[in-house]
Simulated assay, not measured.
Amino acid sequence: MTQSTERLEMIRVDVRDVDSLSAVSNAFSAGSSRCGIYVLHFAGGYEYVGQAQDVLARFRTHVRSWSHPVVALDFAPVPVEELNETERRVIQAKERAGVRLRNSALVGLPMGDAAVDVHVTRAEQERWLDGVTPDIDVSGRCTQADGRDRSGKNFTALALRPYYDVLLDILAAYVRHVLPAPESTEKTFWYVSAMPSTGRTSTWQRVAAITVNNVETLVIGETTENGRVFLDGFLNVAPGLRLPSTLNVELVEYRTVGQVQTIRAEAAFLEFAVYHPLVRDAARTTAMGLLRKGTSMMGRYHCVPLADDIFRRIHREELAR
């Protein structure tokens, strides 16, 4: 069946009680365009508007990423050069109609052009969201770090911690597998801080945090308990995204963006979790939405020598592959 959304004719594919992937695949005849605007319909009445150059690949990602089942997909073929404007028009029409959209502050990919598109093309963003992890060459970024000043009270204190090498593994795993083109977007769109004072207590303090746009997405802390020190922390992803049921997940309210899903665990487990497809997809979707919101207002807190060491660790891991 077809329906009109702001004069755009969309084909409806019902995916309830069937193999959803097969249903969507069968809706496209050989040679038909898969580039266009789509609307996901969720059980419970929410919708999500997006654009894709290959809607089948994007739908596969959505099926495994959202916690609420998708019951229908609307799609209209649109030329690639018209995707941004058409996406904007459909979202605005949905909002005027009072539709409950999942294009939320954290997970939504803002309509139209975004500043990050200069560094990561929309096609590259789509492949990233579809789970593709391309090779990365950060050798130039590492060369820039050679001979750089490594002074600074916070970084010096952190680098002397006995767990610093382990911390670098955790941070490097997140930067490599969650943030697209991290060497091109650091400081402007995301930053890493050393020994931030936020939330410090007598038994716990942040030792490093990665912030995308203006939202903390990964925080590693140091807990002192009975004279023993160990690393733990949390990973924030958008609400409504599917996560493994075995994780310790809670809903936390942030003043600026509302609710987030917070995964709390020992720091080493957070590194392991980033490699789990569900966690990786949720983290990537969240980070991409935040990157598309625009640049960070807090880039002055970026700890350059810590970032240098993170990129050196990524480079070492890439050479060892």
Results as ranks from 00 to 15, higher is better:
Gly240Arg: 09
Trp190His: 10
Gly221Glu: 14
Thr188His: 04
Leu243Glu: 08
Val212Thr: 15
Thr198Val: 12
Val212Pro: 01
Leu251Gln: 13
Asn226Val: 03
Ser245Ile: 03
Tyr191Trp: 06
Thr224Met: 08
Phe230Thr: 08
Val219Ala: 12
Ala194Cys: 09
Ser193Arg: 12
Arg206Trp: 07
Leu235Trp: 06
Asn214Glu: 11
Glu222Val: 02
Arg228Ile: 15
Arg242Tyr: 07
Asp232His: 15
Thr198Lys: 11
Thr217Arg: 14
Ala208Ile: 04
Thr198Glu: 14
Asn214Val: 03
Val219Thr: 15
Gly233Leu: 01
Thr223Cys: 05
Thr211Met: 08
Val215Gly: 08
Pro196Lys: 04
Leu241Arg: 03
Phe230Asp: 10
Pro244Met: 10
Leu235Gln: 14
Thr203Met: 13
Gly221Ser: 14
Thr224Ala: 11
Phe234Asn: 15
Arg228His: 09
Leu251Pro: 03
Glu225Asn: 12
Gly227Leu: 00
Ala238Trp: 00
Ser197Val: 09
Val229Gly: 00
Gly233Phe: 02
Ser202Glu: 14
Ala209Gly: 05
Val207Met: 10
Val249Lys: 07
Arg228Ala: 05
Gln205Asn: 10
Thr203Arg: 14
Gly199Ala: 11
Ser245Trp: 02
Pro196His: 07
Gly233His: 09
Ala238Lys: 05
Gly227Arg: 02
Gly221Arg: 13
Val192Pro: 00
Thr217Val: 15
Ile220Trp: 08
Pro196Arg: 02
Thr211Cys: 12
Gly233Arg: 03
Thr198His: 12
Gln205Arg: 14
Ser245Thr: 04
Glu216Trp: 05
Pro239Lys: 10
Phe189Met: 04
Gly227His: 02
Phe189Asn: 09
Phe230Trp: 06
Ala194Gln: 03
Leu231Thr: 11
Pro244Leu: 11
